[in-house]
Simulated scan of single mutants.
Amino acid sequence: MTLFRLGYVAMSVNVQNASPSQTMTYQRFKLLRDREAAIRKLERIAQSNIQNCLRLLKHNKAHDIKFFRLSSRLVPLAGHDELEEWNYLSAIKEDLRELGAFSNSEGMRLDFHPDHFVVLNSSDKKILKNSLKVLKYHYLLLHYMGFDPTHRCVFHLGGRYKDKEKSLERFIDNWGLVPEGIQKMVMIENDDTSYTLKDCLYICEKLSIPHVFDIHHHLANHDGERWEEHWERVVNTWSHSPLPVKMHISSPKSQKEFKSHADFVDLGLLLEFVSKANGSTEQIDCMIEAKQKDNALFKLAVELKEHPNIEMLSDSSFIWKD
């Protein structure tokens, strides 16, 4: 029997004025004549973002939600080429420590999903360098939160660059350029355009990287593969991880906009996954990627409670009963 836990992404539609992604563009930054004052403003925005994350975690605690994805935009302009001298961590380390301490005290699993510009299979050295810079930023945030960064950051394999096989091998070649600490942080997810579940498993098994199965992406890009036939391999990629298996669940917005996320998650899609994955491992954390954020989780929980094969153990966790 498997414990299934539900989580959601980055922000709440219920907690007002709590965006963890407030920002300032570099164009706006340049307009501020006093550079030091402009940097202090960036730091205040970052502190506000982290405190808003803490508000979201307290909201999650009230609903017994133990799984949450942090916004990657906590610190605006962190790592920008024109702000390399800025030690942004000195201003936010206490806020990060507070966030991490609360999460740890409540047994919450937090992680990150950097944007699509993190590409480790690029032949362009500048793109690779920038990708590593972004990953280091996430590593440092996790470190200052007091987390073991192991398997806390998921991203895609990258571009096809007109030759998928060569691009897969280039990922392996470039992996040797990735610092060991960042290597340990990484998880790989199948995407909706370039790399299927089977492609990702090739890399994950070769480099001992956990695979995060995205069922929506699989439906959009599968080359005839049936995920059930590879599920044992997915679970095995987590055998060396201190964390439970993780997957992503979302529903297509429409047939015309199949790759876009819907407001909510289709119950049938989740139940099909749960019934087939049940018993394969002790725990699976299911990240809901839906436009309605926590409302999507709440709606799904209400629907799950009504199903005869589901036993809810909390507001966001359940088991499947045969």
Rank of each mutant, 00 (worst) to 15 (best):
F4I: 00
A18V: 03
S19C: 10
S19F: 11
P20D: 11
R28V: 12
F29S: 06
D34A: 08
R35H: 03
E36C: 14
R40D: 00
L42S: 01
E43F: 08
E43L: 09
I45Y: 07
N49K: 04
N49E: 04
Q51I: 05
L57S: 00
K61V: 13
A62L: 05
H63W: 10
R69P: 14
L70G: 13
S72Q: 09
P76A: 02
P76G: 13
P76N: 09
A78Q: 03
D81E: 07
E82Y: 11
E84K: 15
N87W: 00
I92R: 04
I92D: 06
D95T: 01
D95M: 00
S103V: 06
D111H: 15
D115Y: 11
D115K: 13
F117Q: 04
V118K: 15
V119E: 12
L120Q: 10
N121H: 09
N130R: 15
L132H: 11
H143C: 01
G146Q: 04
F147R: 13
F147Q: 10
D148F: 06
H151A: 02
L157P: 15
G158R: 00
Y161F: 08
D163M: 06
D163E: 03
K166F: 02
N174H: 07
W175G: 01
W175D: 04
W175Q: 08
G176W: 10
M185F: 05
M187D: 05
E189F: 03
N190D: 02
D191A: 02
S194M: 14
S194R: 14
Y195T: 03
L197E: 11
L197M: 00
K206H: 14
L207A: 11
F213L: 06
L219P: 12
L219Q: 15
N221V: 10
N221F: 00
R226C: 14
W227C: 09
S239C: 06
V245Y: 02
S250Y: 00
K253S: 01
Q255P: 14
S260D: 11
N278D: 05
E282P: 11
Q283S: 06
Q292M: 07
D294Y: 00
N295V: 13
L297R: 14
K305F: 04
N309E: 06
I310A: 01
S317I: 06
S317F: 11
S317V: 08
